[in-house]
Structure formats: structure tokens, C-alpha cells
Design a protein around this nucleic acid. Structure first.
Ligand SMILES: [Mn+2]
Ligand SMILES: [Mn+2]
Ligand SMILES: [Mn+2]
Ligand SMILES: [Mn+2]
Lengths: 217, 217
DNA sequence: AGTTAATTTTAGACAGAGCTAAAAATTTAT
DNA sequence: ATAAATTTTTAGCTCTGTCTAAAATTAACT
């Protein structure tokens, strides 16, 4: 499997998490920052290898083999991200690009030993679950902050969007995973949400609240 | 810089350590396990980038830029090898292939933090020096075991050949870096060398003795 | 339904890295 | 000093993964 094939599998997997039916060529092209024609070529190749199901003009879906392969790459990505934060002093907004490279290193021993070195962690620095060796993913009961009602409390457990801009914004707000917060109310004017984190009360935009996962308390 | 270009630079650097003048196309093809015609193409590309000096039919040499780039890749290789042994329970004969992949990951922060995480080590698991951030390489006073005379003592500090076969052979002989040994004598018949390591006396072939570095005591 | 718009696929090219076979240059032998 | 052998380069192909432009198909609108 080439680096490129692995990235396509990951992209199709992630798109499949949201969307219901088949994944469109255009959607894949969008997230891969490439052209639809290139996607068509690659999808055919992956279909030949039995990793995706594909019918002309009807989009693609991962086969079970493809799904497992995608998950194995995601496992590596998230373990490396955690390694970078835990052991090498990276911050959560610096790890993604490096993990994009490290996830393609081929060595079973490497990844299993890394897993052990990190003490078999269950989530990465962004709160995303780390699949186990066999591809099982621990589901967690997280909801978007935006869904909490006034007065409800939650603890931050993850981000939906892990762009540097959002992560650094959260840093400036001093919102980090593990922190408890309480919803004080919603502003009808712009749908922003007033929350209390520790001692301080802050306003968080609707967009931000729709990208921050919390576990209800 | 592509993965392939980095590998060529490393190969030319290592060949230059031994050989005196320019490095021949054939020699590079040999160590890269490729064909001379492919080497010619790549050398031209590297020459265009100012990383090697090249005159048709006259072989190649690294420029100062090329030398520094090669050393930076070797630095990464050796730091990763040490990481694998020290932190992830790899043995010294398992690390090379994985390090060949990891050495191409691009991130200055990654490698500097890895260096710090390992406590700024000076040698890799095979006794090879780890270049510092600026490309300086600590020279050490090692000599081949084969050069020791009867009665001389030394401590193992490195291997010249780090093939798995040789490393595993040393493991079976219970010869590892840091061990002290004494030369008991040479066998005229096959040039093998009798040595004492710890309590036990063993015979080591001439070939092996020409691939094991010791520091004289 | 019929036309227009959008999506998807095909056809043809290209850059990177490699190969084989043939030509050119250099080295070695007679 | 020639001829033979070896090394190196060139020419032409192949394989990935990408692109553009054009054709085919599907979706959206009167
Ligand atoms: Mn990531
Ligand atoms: Mn992540
Ligand atoms: Mn190595
Ligand atoms: Mn080494």
C-alpha cells in the first residue's frame, strides 16, 4: 500500500462517518485537495484491490478490508499524535502534520511497542478514540457543547474540528480537555453561549460550541 | 527534497567516507541496489540543486550543502535507531529498516525534541556517532579488533558492518557494546583470533574481527 | 418532458524514479 | 598504439499519481 492509497482510504473512512450512503468523487477530491479525475483513477485502483466498492457514477464505499486498513492508519496517526504531546513537548495544535507523515511508517512492532510505551491510551490529544490493535473503537458518550441547555454542566472531552486556528483559540480561552464547564445561557442575538469555566465566565460562539465535545455531568 | 534524493545523498556520503576521490556511478548503483543509468539521472538532478559536483564520466562528490544535508539525514537515522532500542524494546539488529523510514520525516521540532528526549546521545546502537544539530560529528579513537596484538585489551565500541547476520552472530557470542575483551592470540591456519570476553575464551573469525571496533585500553 | 446545470468519467499529458538496450567515453591489455 | 573490455551516458519505455479538457451521465429546473 502506498502513502497515497492510505490517505485515500482514511479520507473515505472519515467522510463515511458523517454521510449516509456512498461517498461522492467530488467529496473525496475536496478533502484530498485534488481533482475529481484523480479520485476516479484512485478509486478504481482501490476497487481492484478489494478495498472499496465502486460503481461508475455512484460513488464509493469502503469494504470491510478497506475499513480495517483505514482504521489501522488512524490508529497510527493518533498514537503518534499522543506520543508527540506526551513525550516530545508538542502542543495539540502542532501534532497533526507530523502525524500525517509518521502514520505511514510500516512496522507492526513499532506501533505495538509505541502503544505499550504510551500505556495503551484510549484517546488522542484531541479526544478522538484510538482504535485498538484489532480495529475496535471505543465509543464514548460525548455531545456537542451546543446541545447543552442552560444550567447543564459538562467536561470537555474532545474537538470535532482540530484545525490549528480552533485549537489555539481554545488555548487562549483556557479551555482544554478535562476542564469542567457550566452553560450560563444563550444569547438570542448571535446564538453565542455564555459558559463558566473554572472561575471565569466567557462567551463562546455558536460555531465554536458546535465543534467542542463535552461529556454531560 | 524527496525520499529518493535523501537516500542518494546518504549513499554518496557513506561512499565518500572510504573512497578518496570522486564517487563512481557504479558504486552508487551498487549500494542503492539500482542501475547505473538511474544513478546518472539522479546525480544530474542533485547537481542542478547544488548538492553534488558532477562532471560527465568523472563521478560525483557532495558539495558542502550536500554534505550537511546527508549528515542531517544520518542524524535522524541514528537518533531514531537509538529511540527504538532505548524506548521501544527493539534489539540492535531490528532497528535499521524502521529507521530508514523514520529518517525521512520532515520536522525540525520533532528531531530536536527527540534528541532532548534521549538526553542528547552521542552514539547510536551500533556505536556510530550521532551528528549534532549543526552537523558536527564527534570523532572517536576506535580501531578494528583485527588490529590488536596478542595481549592487548579493548572495549567494544562499535560495528563496521551492521547487517542483521553479523549483529545476531555477535549476540550469540555474547559480544555487545561496552564489553571488555583481551586478545589471546591469532591462529595462523585461518587468521581467526582467540579472545577472552568476561570469563570465556572464544574464537572470532578474521572477517568478524575486521568488522568490530574496539577502543584500546 | 425537455433543457440546463452539475457531477463524474475518459482521454491525453506530464513529472519523478526506475529499467533495458544501445551509444559514447574511459580504462586496461596486448 | 591499437584493440578489447569496462564504465558511463543517452534514448526510449513503464508505472504512479497528478492535471486539463472533453465526453458521458445524472440531477435540477422550468
Ligand atoms: Mn490529526
Ligand atoms: Mn487527533
Ligand atoms: Mn542503520
Ligand atoms: Mn546505526
Amino acid at each position: 500500500m502506498t502513502l497515497s492509497e492510505e490517505n485515500y482510504l482514511k479520507a473515505i473512512y472519515h467522510l463515511g462517518r458523517d454521510a449516509k450512503g456512498a461517498i461522492s468523487t467530488n467529496a473525496i477530491a475536496e478533502v484530498m485537495a485534488t481533482k475529481a479525475s484523480s479520485v476516479t483513477d484512485m478509486i478504481k485502483k482501490l476497487a481492484d484491490k478489494g478495498l472499496v466498492k465502486y460503481k461508475r457514477y455512484q460513488g464509493a464505499n469502503l469494504t470491510e478490508d478497506g475499513r480495517l486498513y483505514a482504521i489501522s492508519v488512524i490508529r497510527k496517526h493518533r498514537l503518534w499524535e499522543l506520543f508527540l504531546v506526551e513525550k516530545l513537548n508538542f502542543s495539540w495544535d502542532e501534532v497533526h502534520d507530523v502525524a500525517e507523515q509518521l502514520e505511514h511508517v510500516k512496522s507492526d512492532k513499532l506501533i505495538e511497542e509505541l502503544d505499550a510505551f504510551l500505556d495503551f491510551p484510549s484517546v488522542d490529544p484531541h479526544g478522538d478514540p484510538i482504535p485498538d490493535k484489532d480495529g475496535n473503537i471505543q465509543a464514548s458518550a460525548k455531545v456537542l457543547l451546543a446541545t447543552l441547555k442552560t444550567g447543564e454542566k459538562g467536561v470537555c472531552v474532545g474537538v470535532k474540528n482540530s484545525s490549528r486556528a480552533f485549537l489555539q483559540y481554545l488555548d487562549r480561552l483556557e479551555v482544554s480537555l478535562g476542564k469542567e464547564l457550566t452553560v450560563l445561557g444563550k444569547e438570542p442575538f448571535d446564538n453565542s453561549i455564555a459558559i463558566r469555566v473554572g472561575d471565569t465566565a466567557i462567551h463562546i460562539s455558536s460555531l465554536a460550541a458546535n465543534n467542542l465535545y463535552v461529556k454531560k455531568l
